[in-house]
């Protein structure tokens, strides 16, 4: 018996894993991705915390097994109509798809670092973001990174900051900072590396070891205090001001490179989809599920499901677990 179509919107790690699992359960998933490749943010990362697994390997494992999944890239959702039978999704290529169950896996958006003007991204030459550094780790090419001797990492850029209109913690950037600080020490062993943090929020199995290794093996210097402003001198060196709050002293330093830990914001299309599908969004802008504890992957509408970073910051293992759980929820719904 041919089983139903299920439409999945967003082809990041979450959408891919939902689709693969629905396929295994006998459905025909239709995966719609607006970019020209599948993979979402996983495509931007080099090595993943906590163990340093290659992101490209995970991406390859996920995408090499898509037999039975109908996936489309470069598609934009034009409209979605809801009827008693389910949903009709119309896309800009002229195609239209019918489905009884719809899964939203549209992920997140990185905080645009230039919005924190006082840190000088796109103004000063040697200020880069965590995403730029991941790219550098992969290509080893970036004109802004020239054998730096002193490097600073700024945590919570655009997170936990009401001035940036985002009060929430992005959850993954402390782990990313500690990982990247250690990786850059490996490339430039003589460099002095500082992490400016407000609170260190690394959790979960073996994350503490990652922190300990950064301290003990790589000698990364953790300074509890937020960088308040950055300026540049004539040679392109950066002047950074912060308070060492554990010592109770303001400090100033010159750096050759500053890396901004941009955080996780609700995805671009969250507003559009929340209007089309009448999904609730929280004050933080992420989709709000029916029940945050018991039904975290279901919207109010019976046939509507959502998973991954579109419902809040998550790591990849968390995203993938939620994707698998969602596939089962969809199956239960369709075979009721």
């Amino acid at each position: 018996m041919a089983k139903d179509n299920v439409i999945v919107i967003g082809g990041g790690p979450c959408g891919i894993e939902v689709s693969r699992n629905l396929r295994d359960l006998g459905y025909t998933p239709i995966l719609l991705e607006q970019q020209s490749e599948l993979g979402g943010h996983l495509r931007l990362w080099d090595r993943l915390f906590p163990e340093g697994v290659e992101a490209r390997k995970i991406l390859k494992d996920l995408t090499s097994d898509l037999k039975g999944v109908k996936w489309f890239t470069d598609v934009n959702i034009e409209s979605i109509h809801k009827s008693r039978k389910g949903y009709t999704v119309n896309v800009d290529t002229g195609m239209s798809f019918e489905t009884k169950a719809l899964v939203v896996t549209t992920g997140f958006k990185l905080f645009p670092a230039e919005r924190k003007q006082e840190y000088g991204y796109n103004i000063y030459e040697r200020v880069i973001t965590n995403a730029d550094l991941e790219q550098y780790f992969h290509t080893r090419k970036d004109p802004r990174i020239q054998n730096p001797k002193t490097i600073g990492f700024v945590h919570c850029v655009g997170s936990r900051d009401e001035k940036a209109c985002n009060r929430q913690c992005s959850k993954v950037c402390c782990a990313t900072a500690v990982k990247q600080a250690s990786e850059i020490k490996e490339l430039f062993p003589d460099a002095i590396v500082y992490c400016f943090y407000m609170d260190l929020r690394l959790f979960g199995r073996s994350y503490e070891d990652m922190y300990l290794t950064a301290q003990k093996q790589y000698g990364v210097r953790f300074i509890r205090g937020r960088v308040s402003e950055v300026s540049e001198d004539i040679d392109g060196k950066l002047f950074v001001k912060a308070e060492d709050t554990l010592l109770g002293k303001p400090m100033k330093m010159k750096l050759d490179l500053l890396v901004l830990m941009t955080g996780i914001l609700p995805g671009e299309s969250t507003t559009q989809l929340s209007e089309m599908l009448k999904i609730n969004v929280g004050e933080d802008g992420f989709f709000t599920p029916r029940d945050t504890i018991l039904e975290p992957c279901r919207a109010k509408d019976a046939g509507l499901f959502m998973a991954g970073a579109c419902t809040g910051p998550k790591t990849i293992p968390e995203t993938l677990s939620e994707a698998r759980a969602t596939a089962i929820q969809v199956h239960k719904y369709l075979s009721r």
Binding site: G219, D244, L247, K249, P250, M251, K252, M253, K254
Partner: peptide, 17 residues
Amino acid sequence: GTLKIENLDDSRFKALH
């Protein structure tokens, strides 16, 4: 009262380390 990090000498700490 501001610490200017580049003016500080941490060579003894390195020895301690």
